[in-house]
């Protein structure tokens, strides 16, 4: 019965996420639910990015492309073809995965900053492309028919349901992250992160392994995209492919600690919490972005391993819990 200890690392992340999911239920407050939704969404996206960034060591600046692409495709089927939100999310996730597979075959050959640049280029190209596709509404995007919500008992119920789906997606994202982290596949990723050439010499089939990591990191963002646009009631190119949000995801992963399951959760919470506080605070409101920038800079310069990485270094005994 040594096996359960391997999954101890999942315990803390799960507790945190379940806590966030129950928080609005307890308060019964819509605005709490909105905040919790934002945080859960950030956790799901950051954890997915972490599979590529933290485990594999590839810096994807344009990871939001999967959120936008999957979201667009899924919403199209929900809105124009009357598919259910479930089927829409499924098709959104799958199309994001397929996109990642095709892109991965091409751009994962690039290393370091060249890969990062390519991901930026792809996101911008995709944004511009959707701007031109009449099928998806061009620059105006798509507005959800109000009747779509009826199938779920009206708008209020549909939005409530969206929150629980979001919580479910976040939990799935964490389970994927944990299973990857503790698997042989994940060990191969870590080896690639540390030294890709040495990993290949030891037999890690890096090109395939990286591609699958890319696919895994793309599916959940695709599904989250569908859900978010469904909840929002519309989608437009610049809302679907915001480069700035993509970089914020990197910041979250870095803040919490890349390469750990718990890190992106703490990072997402800390970042969103901080933004929320600064935006509403009288004192910081006007220069909230600068304050965030200063904090980020201090962390990059002085605690590059992130919060969880730092704790792991300071307290090696905590390693099993802080995965």
């Amino acid at each position: 019965m040594k096996n359960w200890r391997n999954h101890l690392g999942l315990l803390l992340p799960m507790l945190v996420v379940i806590g966030f999911s129950l928080w609005p239920v307890i308060t019964g407050n819509i605005s709490t639910r909105e905040s919790a939704f934002t945080i859960l969404k950030a956790i799901a996206l950051a954890s997915s990015l972490n599979i590529l960034l933290g485990y594999t060591g590839y810096v994807s600046f344009g990871h939001i492309v999967f959120y936008g692409f999957g979201g667009y495709i899924g919403l199209y089927f929900v809105n124009q073809q009357d598919w259910s939100i479930w089927a829409g999310m499924l098709v959104g996730g799958i199309s994001a995965g397929i996109l990642a597979f095709l892109l991965g075959k091409a751009i994962l050959r690039l290393r370091g900053a060249y890969f990062a640049l390519a991901t930026i280029g792809i996101n911008e190209a995709m944004k511009a492309l959707f701007n031109n596709l009449d099928l998806f509404g061009g620059p105006i995007g798509m507005v959800l028919n109000f009747s779509v919500y009826k199938a779920y008992g009206g708008a209020a119920k549909a939005l409530g349901m969206a929150f629980y789906i979001m919580a479910g997606l976040t939990i799935i994202a964490l389970i994927i992250s944990h299973l990857v982290r503790t698997s042989k596949f994940g060990l191969g990723l870590l080896a690639i992160r540390e030294d890709e050439d040495a990993a290949e010499v030891m037999g890690v089939v890096a090109p395939d392994t990286k591609t699958w990591a890319y696919v895994l990191s793309a599916i959940i963002p695709g599904m989250v995209g569908v859900l978010f646009f469904f909840k929002n009631g519309n989608v437009e190119p610049h809302v679907a492919f915001p480069l700035h949000s993509s970089i914020e995801l990197l910041v979250m992963v870095m803040l919490g600690g890349q390469g750990t399951v718990l890190g992106p959760i703490l990072g997402a919470f800390a970042y969103q919490g901080m933004r929320g506080y600064f935006v509403t605070s009288e004192f910081f409101k006007d220069i909230q972005l600068s304050v965030s920038g200063v904090l980020l800079l201090l962390i990059v310069l002085f605690i590059p391993a992130g919060a969880v990485g730092w704790l792991r270094q300071k307290f090696p005994t905590l390693r099993r819990v802080l995965q």
């Binding site: 960034l53 060591g57 810096v59 600046f61 370091g112 900053a113 990062a116 970089i247 990197l250 910041v251 870095m254 890349q258 006007d286 220069i287 909230q288 972005l289 600068s290 304050v291 965030s292 920038g293 200063v294 980020l296 800079l297 990059v300 310069l301 590059p304």
Partner: peptide
């Protein structure tokens, strides 16, 4: 200067934080 030999992510995020600082002050 401190991250010049660190992995790419560090220098990318360091310059991005300068970006945030300038945009933040500029917006104000």
């Amino acid at each position: 200067h401190r991250v010049i030999n660190a992995p790419h992510l560090s220098s990318l995020l360091a310059t991005f934080s300068v970006n945030m600082i300038i945009i933040g002050i500029g917006t104000a």
